[in-house]
Amino acid sequence: MVNFDKVTFEYIRRDEEGNVESINKALDGIDLDVKKGDFIAILGANGSGKSTLARHINALLTPTEGTVYIEEMDTKDEDNLLNIRQKTGMVFQNPDNQIIASLVEEDVGFGPENIGIPTKEIWERVAFALEKVGMTAYREKSPNNLSGGQKQRVAIAGILAMKPECIVLDEPTAMLDPKGRREVIETITELNKKEGITIILITHYMTEVVGADKVYVMNGGNVKLSGTPREIFKEVDLLKEYKLDVPQVTEIAHRLRQQGIQLPDCILTVDELVAALGAGICL
């Protein structure tokens, strides 16, 4: 679905005469292979290249070197642009910057209308998309009065109405309260499981990554670690070196193990640790 082949991207700054002032390598030889239907999470410190990578997936940026393929389509080929952007939608951090219409249903219908979908089908798509994100009841409401989590779900519905195969979310929960965060993560998890939509989630919240199929950890424009959440969160010290963290329970289990308490290798959830400690006590 999404393939990066030795992708390098440089932000080049030029002075007034057009001479190169400085070059900042944001991506440095990235290889990535995301299969259709995968739930991928990308972790990394501020400035590690996550957002630059995300912007390559729907051709907002194209590589300085190397190639990005979205289902065999090269993102550098301008003839593919419309097709690529329809297949891969993006959700950004601030919900207020992504909503444009005065009614929820108009906002969701904006994308399909823009690419010339017949009116009847637009409404079908709007109804479908709102139902999938659980926002049907707000269809004729103004987006202004929605909570942050609801606004992000409307933004996701707007992308769903384009019938995408892949959704890229760049820190979609950074500005949300705990309930909003939970709503957004539940919504994308369900879209992944039930609709088979490929999800690429960028986040700074370690607990949101626990349900992913595969996690990539970026640092300095490179992918430093990749694997299942369990494989990644084993590397407590390495993650801290990359300015990241692990969920609190994982850290607690890690420290207990250091104190000689027998526990399974990598604990990811509260229930796992409760079960593991409970089993230990019974023995």
Binding site: A45, N46, S48, A174, H204, K243, L244
Partner: peptide
């Protein structure tokens, strides 16, 4: 008002 929004864990 939410001074750590959008910062990575170390930055937070």
């Amino acid at each position: 008002d939410e001074p750590t929004a959008g910062l990575d864990p170390a930055g937070r």
